[in-house]
Simulated scan of single mutants.
Amino acid sequence: MLDRFDVLLADLDGTLYRGPVVVPGAAEAVEAAGKRGVRTWYVTNNASRTPQDVAAHLVELGFPATAAEVVTSSQAAARLLAEQLPAGSTVLVVGTEALVGEVEAVGLATTREAEGAVAVVQGHSPDTGWRILAEATVALRAGAVWVACNLDPTLPTERGPLPGNGSMVSVLRIASGREPQVAGKPGPALLDVAARQAGASAPLMIGDRLDTDIEGGRAAGMATLLVLTGVSDAVEVLSAPPERRPDYIGADMNALDADPDDLAPGARAGWEVTVADRGELRLSGSGDALDALRALCGAHWAAGGGPARVTSGGGDADRAIRDLGLGGGEIGSATVGAAPRPSGADR
């Protein structure tokens, strides 16, 4: 993989770490890539922290990171605004002081009131309340440009998923009757900014979520690697629509040591997938469970994709289906795509 790509664009939570805990092997994989001349840039939908704060957290966890290598959705949002507004224009900020700083850094003025605001930028803040949402509603109804840092409906906490920026965006959608431009994943703006800043000619987007990381990478025209260390699992991958299908599937960041062809969905030695009917798959053979998933995806996607039912031909197929979490009420079978989708997260 490191021979094929010159810059890694890595998601954070779920890909490199889980809250305060590093994903095993992730820091070592990033460091090894750097020694091979393949730099890592860190991309996050979280607009509540500065690049300096994000870099400090990464360094604390053992990653070789600088603030210059961190690109947040607040930076992408500020750039989107700067491309559309004259210098010095006033932007109403719904979000933290970190977002205020990014907007002012591109030559725009900021406010917390509707009067005089020609644009609204919205990012996550735990202190967002009715008054600032009311001011934003007034500005939007008056025709202000609206940029949302991301649409993630929830963010992970020690108490479970709680409202994220997308939930607050929904409030303004209803109140204003408007739709925002989106700076973060799955929109391409965040990844486009990161690739330009990194000077990448062949970037690889790496993430744990199909609906943000993989869809965002595909929207930006980049190759994508899904790692199964966070939100999206085998059930979701198999039933993914075309815009969310990864180019490569790996267990974790150690996949960077593998041959790209070995990670791509498609036929795999030792495994046979029979498509009995659309959505009806039968797995037989033996080998690595993740290779079984790649084989299932290749066959199912070629047949049209969508929800699938996987049955076992016995032997290692039973084990692979269990290991992948594709087993439902009966051992060796599952209705893939019918399971509840995982909660979203600000990333």
Rank of each mutant, 00 (worst) to 15 (best):
M205Q: 01
L204M: 00
L92M: 00
W130H: 14
L256P: 09
I206N: 10
D152Q: 01
T229G: 01
A142V: 05
R131A: 14
G129L: 12
G37I: 04
V22R: 11
V169P: 09
V94C: 15
E60P: 06
G285P: 05
E28I: 11
P64S: 01
G306L: 03
L326R: 09
L225S: 11
S333Y: 00
R282A: 10
M253T: 05
A198E: 00
V94M: 12
A82T: 02
G279T: 07
F5R: 01
D233V: 14
A223V: 13
P64H: 01
T137E: 09
G95E: 02
E236S: 14
S167Y: 08
L140I: 04
V273Q: 13
P186N: 01
T224A: 06
G25H: 02
S312V: 11
R159N: 15
E69I: 09
M168V: 12
L2W: 10
R178I: 07
G328L: 07
R319T: 14
G298Y: 11
D127R: 15
A119V: 01
M222H: 13
S239C: 12
A77E: 00
G230P: 05
A194W: 02
P161W: 01
D6M: 03
A27Q: 10
S125D: 13
A292V: 06
R282Q: 15
A234Q: 04
G314R: 04
D288P: 08
A223T: 15
Q75N: 08
K185N: 04
L326P: 07
L92E: 03
P163E: 07
V21H: 14
L151M: 11
C149D: 10
E97A: 15
G332P: 00
A295V: 02
V182E: 11
T229P: 03
Q122E: 14
G298F: 09
E31H: 15
R319D: 09
P265H: 03
L162N: 06
G285L: 12
P260S: 02
N45F: 13
A264M: 08
S201V: 07
Q197T: 14
L290A: 10
V93K: 03
T212D: 02
M222V: 05
H124E: 10
A117H: 02
I321M: 00
A195D: 02
A251S: 13
T229I: 02
E243M: 08
Q181A: 15
A302C: 05
T50L: 14
G166I: 06
I206F: 12
P180Q: 05
P188A: 00
D213C: 12
V182G: 03
V171I: 15
E115M: 05
V121R: 06
G37S: 05
G107E: 01
L92I: 03
I174C: 11
A32E: 10
L296S: 05
L2K: 08
I321C: 10
A98L: 04
V273C: 12
D11N: 12
F5A: 07
A295F: 01
E158Y: 04
E60R: 15
R341A: 14
A338Q: 15
A56V: 08
A289H: 14
G107M: 04
E28Q: 10
V147C: 00
G143N: 00
A255L: 03
E31W: 13
E115Q: 11
A240E: 09
L281R: 08
T311C: 08
V22E: 12
V94T: 10
V23H: 01
A276I: 07
